[in-house]
Design a protein around this nucleic acid. Structure first.
Lengths: 220, 220
DNA sequence: TTAAAAAGTTAGCTTATTCTAACATTTGTG
DNA sequence: CACAAATGTTAGAATAAGCTAACTTTTTAA
């Protein structure tokens, strides 16, 4: 079944909202907001994707991808992350530059190209932002990710991944001296707004809760 | 100015018809036929491209690209051929497999990616089919190409390029023992249908005129 | 528990690109 | 030169995807 770029984008967005986010965040409105379109347009496409058995969906019901729909989304994520890895390792793209171009490249249709790219890159397990790359067989265990914001004062952790959807966020991460595998020490959590004071390379920095929500860590 | 994939495809087709083919071959009908659409659709798009100053065009007049239109087309050809080279050299694609995927890749928008790809490939001058790759500055002298069909009986030549638009043609070229730089000896030209008997690696083969029209050579 | 707010849906319109069928112009030939 | 064939153009409809405005259903909270 041939899908348009638009349909693929919807499936990826749905996967993000239903499988990779906290629950409840998966409604017509969230989908529309995420894609920057009107709820009416989202509703329209949902009906179409339901017709193609990619989305399980009843009027006023909750959104969910079918097995097929999930498989398509996971393939797209695999392609996206392989391309990001390629851009970063061989095309001299910094980690905040890769996302936009990978958004285009992920729609290229060629199973052979993806297989060869995977081989060329040495079968990488993670992309430049630390995100796991789904396997060729569709294997993709969303690893339980702890956010920096979920830690307590006094905890230490290692940065394992960063949400790649915002260039500004990635630039900020680099700006304050962080990179994959950086050690972070949580000094204090401020009650009034949830912001954190963290210690990075001996330097004390304060980061917002919104920031800490998008930074994934492994507790040490 | 942002162009759609469709508009880009029209410009590339127009470049092919007006700059790279024998003259007279550039009418609404030829364009439609080349793109596999109806003449009405071609006419429609020509009006739109005229509005964007990419095509110089008057009702019932002949088709021609403006300087801008040509520049867009040449950039596309550059991207297409760089990707073909990448696929062939690093992704284990045979020369008859590269075209289709390159048709998709050529629409990726990222000047940086193209510059880096060029560097990564070592600034190649020709693609896997022997076609010249336009420069980053838009430099592209369509080299005067002699077709195999333009030779006389007794002439010898070297194969310098093959039209890449048909996979079947490329497979056939390999099949009869030809590759870039192969030496070809024209033994005889048959009057009744223009077919040629040629000597390749000591083996005598007969090829059709249509075939010989798409094989480019340098006379020795 | 009921009414306002939030969320979701529908109807009807817009733009891009395609088509077919009908019409207009140009070309080529007897 | 005249008219048929070839070529090119227009009109009107279809499909995909988006929008706004109006309407319906569900949720929330007083």
């Amino acid at each position: 079944m041939e899908l348009t770029k638009t349909e693929e984008d919807y499936l990826k967005a749905l996967f993000h909202l239903t499988e990779e986010s906290e629950a409840d965040k998966a409604g017509t409105n969230q989908l529309a907001e995420y894609l920057g379109i009107s709820p009416a347009s989202a509703n329209n496409m949902l009906k179409k994707l339901k017709g193609k058995a990619l989305v399980a969906y009843e009027k006023y019901g909750k959104l969910e991808l079918t097995g097929q729909g999930k498989a398509v989304a996971v393939r797209l994520i695999r392609k996206h992350r392989l391309w990001e890895t390629f851009l970063h390792q061989h095309m001299n793209f910094s980690w905040d530059e890769v996302h936009g171009v990978a958004e285009q490249l992920e729609h290229i249709q060629s199973p052979k190209l993806i297989a060869e790219l995977d081989r060329f890159l040495g079968f990488p397990r993670r992309d430049p932002h630390g995100a796991v790359i789904p396997g060729a067989d569709g294997e993709y265990d969303t690893p339980p990710k702890a956010t920096l914001s979920s830690l307590q004062a006094g905890d230490a952790c290692r940065l394992v991944a960063v949400d790649d959807s915002s260039e500004a966020l990635l630039r900020y991460v680099s700006r304050i001296g962080l990179a994959l595998n950086s050690r972070i020490q949580v000094e204090e959590i401020h009650e009034f707004d949830g912001s954190l004071s963290i210690l990075v390379e001996g330097v004390l920095t304060m980061v917002s809760k919104q920031f800490a929500d998008r930074v994934f860590v492994e507790k040490l």
